[in-house]
Amino acid sequence: MGRTIDALQIRHEIGGIGAIWYREWKVFLREKSRIVASAVNPILWLLVFGGGLGRSVSIPGTDYQAFIYPGILAQAVLFSSIFFGVYIVWDRKIDFLKEVLVAPISRTSVFIGKVVGGATDSVVQSVILLVLGVVLSRFGMIPGLHPTVTGFGAALLILALTTASLVSVGLILGAWMESPEGFQLVSSFLLFPTFFFSGALFPLDRLPSWLAPLVRLDPLTYSVDALRHVILGTAHFALGLDLAVMVGFTVVVIAVGSVAFQRMKV
């Protein structure tokens, strides 16, 4: 008897996660401008910043533009994932959040549904950026980048894991902040250091001694490094270390996020 009830409850929880995901997906599809915008900025970074600086900077073994391509992918996912957290603040501003929280599913499921919803958005964005990477390199606009199916496929998996953790961070922030303005403020304090310290724009060898520990503390560093492994075939840390840190970080933030949702006020 107990077992059948548990099975039913688990089915309901999975259905609830699906419901939250359904809503986020519908909203995402309805805001096409968001999808376009999410691809434009990274391409500008890659072509303008990378192309402009690439003439005067040389990275051993590859061109600068190809070198920052993995970092730009990580950056795009960083920004869209964290910003996804602001939607929970909007949901709370009207009573939509109450409608979700009064439903007979656990708050952990609400959190997981949100993570899956936000991660889906970032994965779509990643696919667009990976395809653009292939197209642009065909036209010789990213010298030094040689896309392979396995490399880019692995990159997508790494980006999916990265966004799962970063969406969780954004949601933790969203569960905690009461106004969208507050969210913007706090998230920008979080975003820029995370981006700059991740080594998205520079190699990790020969760092000044004050910078090296900060880079190692930044969780995004390991995503960028793993992406370099699979896209460029060369990186700083061992791929195993990168993946272990990423998985560990994801587990921690999902646990923290689930607690943050339990405590969240309506």
Partner: peptide, 26 residues
């Protein structure tokens, strides 16, 4: 419950709001 303030998602259609509700309630 019908809350005091609007609690439907105004980017979704009426039907989609109801479908979402049905999914949330299993």
């Amino acid at each position: 419950i019908v809350f005091q303030d609007p609690s439907s998602d105004d980017t979704l259609t009426g039907y989609e709001n109801l479908k979402l509700h049905g999914m949330l309630y299993g």
